[in-house]
């Protein structure tokens, strides 16, 4: 591997890692604040991609379609929290697992009913369609760099919201002590609704931005879900910072293992996770 190719691979790894972070951030946020293990998180990613495809067909505008998809996802999240999740806060964690598995079934069926089962694709918008030459053979598409930057921006945004705003303060307080927050006269239910809605929207947003790069197919959510869990667990459940570090780590390890250790490439992220959990049973940055 010469140096130029090494750099391209590093870029591949970073870009994949950043996208993973975007998907995983919502999951870790919801778990951290609400203690809910949302197995249907991957389905939200899938819904985002399908909504994007649908609205691009309808409006022919990338930005408009992205905005519409994000808003619908947010509403969906709010509705789910209000009708289903909020009845389970005082119940066993396993009931939440069962509920979200039921939701996976429903979302998969809805996808098949609404949009069919053929693989779908979204074209890269014109203004982002160029590419940059890296070596004599390899080019890097502007869109993928745009997505990477967008993920970075969102990561920074999340960091600021959580550490610098009143909402973020409540989120942090809710993580450590639910009763305390309630005693302070804060409507914890509203906080939970907002956080869950935001979590769903983040997953859907990841689906939206990956739509032009990925293939939109049934079952795309479940595959992502596992990678997502790996990231969240390595980082420490509930830690946004952990998820960020872990996502980059998984992205880079996965990318290089694919080329350097092909025999192990299917297992490498699981090996990584197992090793980290053996050394640090609570993940890298658990609170």
């Amino acid at each position: 591997m010469d140096f130029a190719i090494f750099l391209v691979q590093l870029l591949n790894g970073l870009q994949y890692g950043l996208l993973l972070f975007l998907i995983a951030s919502g999951l870790t946020l919801v778990f951290g604040v609400m203690g809910i293990l949302n197995l249907a998180h991957g389905s939200m990613y899938m819904i985002g991609a399908y909504l994007m495809w649908y609205f691009v067909q309808l409006t022919d505008s990338f930005v408009l379609a992205a905005l519409l998809s994000a808003v619908i996802a947010l509403l969906l999240g709010v509705v789910i929290e209000k009708t289903l999740i909020n009845r389970l806060y005082r119940r066993n964690h396993l009931d939440q697992v069962l509920l979200t598995i039921g939701m996976i079934f429903v979302f998969n069926a809805m996808q098949s009913l609404l949009w069919g089962d053929d693989p779908l694709g979204v074209a890269v918008p014109g203004w982002l369609s160029g590419s940059i030459s890296l070596t004599e053979l390899v080019e890097y598409p502007v869109y993928r760099i745009f997505v990477a930057l967008l993920c970075l921006l969102l990561a920074a945004g999340l960091y600021l919201v959580i550490n610098r705003t009143r909402l973020g303060m409540l989120v942090r307080a809710g993580e450590s002590n639910r009763e305390m927050v309630e005693c302070l006269g804060i409507d914890i239910n509203r906080l939970y609704t907002i956080v869950f809605g935001a979590g769903v929207m983040l997953a859907a947003l990841a689906g939206v931005v990956s739509a032009p790069m990925a293939s939109i197919v049934p079952g795309m959510g479940e595959h992502v879900l596992i990678s997502c869990f790996v990231v969240v667990v390595i980082g420490g459940m509930g830690s946004i910072k952990g998820a960020f570090v872990a996502a980059l780590m998984v992205g880079i390890v996965d990318t290089f293992a694919a080329v350097l250790l092909p025999q192990l490439s299917s297992m490498i992220v699981y090996i990584l996770m197992a090793v980290i959990l053996i050394i640090k049973p609570q993940g890298l940055f658990s609170s």
Partner: peptide, 21 residues
Amino acid sequence: IMVPFPKTEFQSYITDIASMK
């Protein structure tokens, strides 16, 4: 090159192909 099924992260493999010309 054998890619684990059903992985669809192909970028690193394709970069590898480019390096072999």
